[in-house]
């Protein structure tokens, strides 16, 4: 029980917004900056800071491309990020099972 809680709280996914970002990336290959903003209802600055954390952990990768003349920043989940996400979910589920 205790180690489960620790596991949850040490990963950088113990945050609603970052978890939301990762859930979107689990079901989409690439999501652009605006897509996250819209779905999660965030400001540019707020989203950017969470993205930086995820990038720092090596959970997401960034790609810059031009759509027409507009630069567009998109993100994808890395293998490491996918594993962290599934581990986090598994830990959450285990906690729910044990902690009624």
């Amino acid at each position: 029980m205790k180690h489960l809680l620790e596991k949850l709280e040490t990963t950088k996914l113990d945050n609603r917004i970052r978890l939301g970002i990762m859930s979107m990336l689990m079901v989409n290959d690439w999501v652009d900056f605006g897509g996250f903003k819209e779905m999660l209802g965030l400001t540019d600055g707020n989203l950017a800071s969470h993205m930086k954390v995820l990038e720092g952990e090596g959970y997401v990768e960034m790609r810059k491309a031009f759509v027409g003349r507009k630069p567009q920043t998109s993100y994808t989940a890395t293998v490491l990020g996918r594993k962290a996400f599934t581990d986090h979910l598994a830990a959450l589920e285990e906690l729910l099972k044990s902690g009624t």
């Binding site: 978890l19 689990m26 906690l95 729910l96 902690g99």
Partner: peptide, 23 residues
């Protein structure tokens, strides 16, 4: 310690996020 309901809520939220962003 955070409670049971909060974890359950997080899981539900994740599921809905995955649904909404892909379907």
């Amino acid at each position: 310690m955070r409670n049971h309901n909060e974890h359950l809520e997080t899981l539900t939220e994740i599921r809905s996020m995955m649904e909404r962003s892909s379907r």
